[in-house]
């Protein structure tokens, strides 16, 4: 599915869409950044509760398609500004990570 497809999930709010046509091929949940870099696949949607700016560096370098902040975690303005600068697709989910992933799974399959 494409990043724009996430817009159809009512519990997701888009904070920045850099490339809505980008493909999402899988989903990864994790908060330990090195773990994410070691295990998340390229082109996956990454669900996390971390909202420090290093998340955006990891998303960029690990080539994830989108970052989804779960549990309604709202990042600060600096985070959003850097997401825009780095071209990271950024969403906030009002649901916990597990339920967020289930919503994605329905669209991925």
């Amino acid at each position: 599915m494409k990043v724009n497809t996430l817009l159809s999930i009512s519990t997701l709010q888009a904070l920045h869409i850099a490339d809505g046509e980008r493909e999402i091929t899988s989903c990864y949940i994790g908060d330990l950044l090195s773990w994410v870099m070691g295990r998340a696949k390229a082109d996956s949607a990454w669900i996390t509760i971390m909202s420090n700016v290093n998340v955006l560096a990891v998303a960029t370098l690990a080539d994830t398609s989108a970052v989804i902040l779960a549990e309604g975690v709202m990042p600060d303005d600096e985070f959003i500004a850097i997401a825009k600068a780095k071209g990271v697709n950024l969403f906030v989910s009002s649901l916990p990570a597990y339920e967020s992933a289930i919503a994605l799974s329905e669209l991925l399959s």
Partner: peptide, 15 residues
């Protein structure tokens, strides 16, 4: 607390 220090840095570099 920033999400680092999981003991995966050097293993990832090797991986």
């Amino acid at each position: 607390s920033l999400g680092f220090g999981a003991g995966m840095g050097l293993p990832n570099m090797k991986r």
